[in-house]
């Protein structure tokens, strides 16, 4: 690990200011992804700003009837929160399908949104990677790409977004609330929060330097059956090959978001619109524009079959 200096921030504004003014500074919250990458020297911050003591760990009902989730609420606590279990069950389900109990005890809501891809070429510093080292090329294209993305990819990068939580947040139309170094606040719709790789895959989010996530706000609950189905190589503690977050409403309409297949949490309006037509139509709409390799082409069929399974389960419930 490269040397760095460390400070414990005492205010949100102070943290944002420090991050904006110190070259190479990074926030650290749970640290489970950042420290892993620092040990591999994939992340090499010169200064760490510990944001764990900023009081951003509350979950509150908003005046609009939604839920404001502090950026430092741990994944365990968010999944176990009574209001989340009752009104946003898809979020609870997504959270508990990710990582391990130990990691969920540390991982935060803000940090989970910012976690980086598990593309093996991003992790292997001997290989080229445009995300890790802009302009160095992509080892994954033409390499071993079984786990990688098939939607939103570019000629520069086919890395998949790893988060389960973010897929549920995307389904629920969450807003990411931030403060920047000048003290300005804004809310970013989650659809705009994660960026597609294009020819700048190292730019992953809409956050500006020094901008810090303070909370994630969910709109009013969406009624219906909330499900999160994750398909992976082992039964627990593995990243998704394909995951589907869905809410099936009583009137037969539905909404969907997908993990494991996109360069970012994936959702398309056409797939939601096809909800009444069934699994095949939803899969077709969701997979429009898919660009696969010989290793990950199976994900298309897996998306459809996962949807078929969810529809059957839904019919059995009705």
């Amino acid at each position: 690990m490269r040397p760095f200096t460390y400070e414990r921030a005492t205010s949100v504004e102070g943290a944002a200011k420090a991050a904006a003014s110190v070259q190479g500074a990074r926030f650290i919250a749970g640290g489970t992804n950042l420290l892993d990458l620092m040990k591999l020297q994939i992340e090499t911050p010169t200064h760490l700003i510990d944001v764990n003591h900023l009081g951003l760990d509350r979950i509150e009902i908003t005046p609009e009837g939604g839920l404001r989730i502090g950026a430092l609420v741990r994944n365990t606590d968010l999944a176990a929160d009574k209001a989340v279990r009752r009104d946003y069950a898809v979020l609870s389900r997504a959270l508990v399908s990710g990582a391990s109990g130990q990691l969920r005890n540390k991982a935060t809501t803000g940090g989970n949104l910012l976690q980086r891809t598990r593309c093996p070429y991003f992790y292997d510093t001997r290989m080229p990677c445009n995300k890790r080292q802009p302009g160095s090329g992509c080892g994954a294209i033409g390499g071993i790409s079984r786990g990688l993305a098939i939607l939103g990819v570019s000629d520069a990068c086919i890395a998949q977004h790893p988060s389960d939580m973010a897929v549920a947040m995307r389904l629920l139309d969450a807003q990411v609330d931030t403060v920047d170094g000048a003290g300005a606040r804004r809310s970013i719709p989650i659809a705009d929060f994660h960026l597609l790789p294009g020819d700048t895959p190292h730019k992953e989010t809409a956050l500006k330097p020094g901008e810090i996530i303070t909370s994630v706000t969910l709109p009013k609950p969406v009624s219906g059956t909330h499900v999160y189905r994750k398909v992976r190589d082992r039964a627990s503690y593995a990243f998704a090959l394909v995951s589907v977050a869905a809410i099936f409403a009583k009137d037969g309409t539905a909404r969907f978001a997908f993990g494991g297949i996109g360069a970012k949490p994936w959702r398309v309006a056409a797939a939601d619109a096809a909800g009444k037509q069934g699994a095949k139509a939803v899969a077709e709409a969701a997979l429009a524009g898919a660009r696969t390799t010989e290793h990950n082409d199976f994900k298309k069929a897996l998306v459809q079959q996962t949807l078929v399974s969810l529809y059957r389960q839904q019919e059995a419930r009705a």
């Binding site: 460390y6 414990r8 650290i28 640290g31 489970t32 420290l35 892993d36 040990k39 760490l48 510990d50 764990n52 365990t76 391990s100 109990g101 130990q102 990691l103 005890n105 540390k106």
Partner: peptide, 28 residues
């Protein structure tokens, strides 16, 4: 030493965590 195996699990403030993926200074 990367949070994958759990051999380093300890209980901090009543919760189990991977002690390899956290800095001691963060637990002052």
């Amino acid at each position: 030493d990367h949070g994958q195996c759990g051999a380093c699990t300890v209980i901090v403030e009543g919760r189990r965590i991977n002690s390899c993926l956290t800095l001691a200074v963060m637990h002052d």
